[in-house]
Design a protein around this nucleic acid. Structure first.
Length: 554
RNA sequence: GCGCCUGUAGUUCAGUGGAUAGAACAUCGGCCUCCGGAGCCGAGGGUCGCAGGUUCGAAUCCUGCCAGGCGCACCA
């Protein structure tokens, strides 16, 4: 499947060019087909004449005119115009737009499905927060991003695996368990304090109470025996909360991958010996090092196994990425917070030596989230322990608003999250605005049905009655939806979809204020009901990709 | 000091080398006999951080500065 209008147009252009110049032009330069800035310039435009002129030395005008006259014979265009200095502006024919509208109603959410990823699987690993405390708002951004990207890739036809990598072993977990142990003893009345480098959050006190009841630990047990026991317990408890939060946020994983698995089945040592064979490992100062410097210029070598014999996180991560590769993913997407930015070259180097194809590993770095209440910044310092948890955010603004806001900016961009705005049930709030468009359509459809006017089948509707510019704008916007989904998916940039949603909602509201859907003219009512039904389908579809609900009533 | 990200309207941000740089919010001014006014329309507002360069063409690519963020562990 492929309902991309841009591909259709590109192919038409290619055919025309090839038939005109015969074998003179073997391959065309990478030309662009996109929406022009101004309405007068048509629905789509291409810069091909510019690009051809620089090659052949001809003027863009002459080339442009020749291609234009060839294209004007194509049925999908109603108007083809060369525009100085080097564009061809294209208008899609009404019959094409109307056929496409019918296609939307027939295919529904499959309208935006592509088969280009068929037979290939993709893994998206995201959030993967350490199980040492509750998720905070930053993890919410990761969750929204990862889930939307996964949905989007699913639309492109890939089989998508969502995965959470759990660091369930290592020094931090030991510190966590020790902190818990201290909290438990405090409850028993012992005078002990959680150390500076421990985990001092209140949540451990709650877990300590549960641990005290469930574990039945005898005081005389040595630390050596207690800590492993408590480690398991505390990781399980915190992970339970993390799962709950994510579940509430609408995120489900196909797999929770535990770091400890890599040790149990020897993956780690196998991977390291693989690197050793390649001569990328050496010993120095009692530690085992990876020769990052020989793979990537300017990088430092990194420790894999410490002096004390323990492996570093980096070592596990190498084994983990080897495991991903072995599972045969066509593409692997890692979503990390900005605080891991320095880690990227290292893991890229690893991917390279493990034999990942170029670009098979995509690492998305998202910038930090700043919470605001009105204009005022909400303190979110982890250090002071007063960070806002994902749970609190969901309590306050809800899942839909949280997702929409997280997805409304490029991941490279710092995110200002205005809690007040997110809560508002007014059109300044973009989530509300978009959802309202959907609910409003549902309301009209309900009213029409009550009056005995039913939305017709694609075979029966007379779309020639849709003649106003507002109707055409909606049809055009809908026709270009598959391209939007494709581009957002290929670039792993779901934020484009929130923008598109706002555009289509706005076109609908504008149409609504200018025209009545239910009129005395039954045939016209049918045509308009058909149109708004299509709008409803695409809004719900896009919201679905973003993991946001499309309410029928609000 | 080094690396990466960011710098675009009062604010928050879009803008895969193309035409006169856009949106939302905010501000100001308008629009309801009638399908959800929980909506719509209009106006003002910009040296695209600064300076060079690349080319037919630069917010976009390159170089150098300036400012903010995040990193720079035998933590994860």
């Amino acid at each position: 499947m492929d309902n991309s209008v841009k591909s259709l147009v590109k192919n038409a252009i290619k055919n025309v060019v090839e038939s005109i110049w015969k074998k003179d032009l073997h391959h065309l330069p990478q030309f662009v087909v996109d929406r022009p800035k101004r309405k007068e310039w048509g629905d789509l435009s291409t810069n091909l004449p510019f690009l051809l002129s620089t090659r052949g030395g001809e003027h863009p005008e002459s080339i442009g005119e020749i291609i234009s006259s060839g294209l004007s014979r194509e049925k999908i265009f109603s108007r083809v115009e060369f525009a100085s200095p080097g564009f061809i502006n294209l208008s899609l024919s009404d019959s094409f737009l109307k056929d496409t509208l019918k296609k939307v109603v027939r295919e529904r959410e499959n309208f935006t499905v592509f088969s280009l990823g068929e037979g290939r699987s993709v893994q998206v690993e995201f959030v993967s927060a350490n199980p040492t405390g509750p998720l905070h708002v930053g993890h919410g951004r990761a969750a929204a991003l990862g889930d939307a990207i996964a949905n989007n890739l699913g639309k492109l036809g890939y089989k998508v695996y969502r995965e959470y990598y759990v660091n369930d072993i290592g020094g931090q977990i030991k510190r966590l368990a020790r902190s818990l142990w201290i909290r438990m003893r405090q409850i028993e009345g012992e005078k002990v304090e959680v150390p500076e480098d421990g985990y001092r959050g209140e949540y451990l006190v709650d877990i300590a109470k549960v641990a005290g009841e469930k574990l039945n630990i005898k005081e005389e047990l040595s630390d050596e025996k207690v800590i492993p026991l408590l480690s398991r317990f505390v990781v399980d408890e915190i992970l339970k909360d993390i799962r709950d939060d994510l579940d509430r946020f609408g995120v489900r994983y196909d797999r929770w991958f535990f770091e400890s698995e890599l040790y149990k089945n020897d993956d780690l040592s196998r991977t390291l010996s693989l690197l050793e064979q390649k001569g990328l490992i050496y010993e120095k100062d009692g530690a085992l090092w990876f020769r990052t410097s020989s793979v990537i210029n300017g990088e430092q070598d990194r420790v894999l196994r410490r002096k004390n014999g323990e492996y570093t996180y980096f070592a596990s991560d190498i084994a983990y990425h080897q495991d991903k590769l072995k599972r045969g993913f066509y593409r692997v997407v890692d979503i990390w917070g900005a605080d891991h930015i320095g880690y990227v070259p290292r893991i890229k180097a690893v991917a390279k030596v493990l034999g990942y194809p170029e670009d098979a590993l995509k690492i998305i770095i998202y910038q930090l989230v700043t919470l605001k209440r009105g204009g005022r910044r909400v303190s979110a310092s982890t250090r002071a322990g007063e960070f806002i948890s994902l749970k609190e955010l969901l309590d306050e603004v809800g899942r839909d608003a949280a997702r929409f806001f997280f997805l409304s900016r490029s991941s490279d961009s710092h995110l200002d999250f205005d809690l007040e705005l997110a809560k508002k049930q007014t059109p300044e709030n973009p989530v509300f605005y978009v959802q309202y468009a959907h609910a409003r359509i549902c309301s009209i459809l309900r009213k029409a049905e009550k009056e005995g006017i039913f939305t017709p089948d694609p075979e029966k509707v007379n779309l020639n009655l849709l003649t106003t510019p507002e109707e055409r704008d909606l049809m055009l916007s809908i026709a270009l939806l598959p391209d939007q989904v494709k581009e957002a998916g290929e670039n792993l940039e779901p934020h484009h979809l929130t923008g598109y949603l706002q555009e289509i909602a706005s076109l609908f509201h504008y149409f609504y204020t200018r025209h009545r859907v239910i009129t005395n003219n039954r045939e016209l009512s049918h045509a308009r009901l058909f149109l708004i039904q299509a709008v409803k389908i695409v809004i719900a579809d896009l919201l679905g990709i973003l993991g946001i609900s499309a309410p029928e009533r609000m």
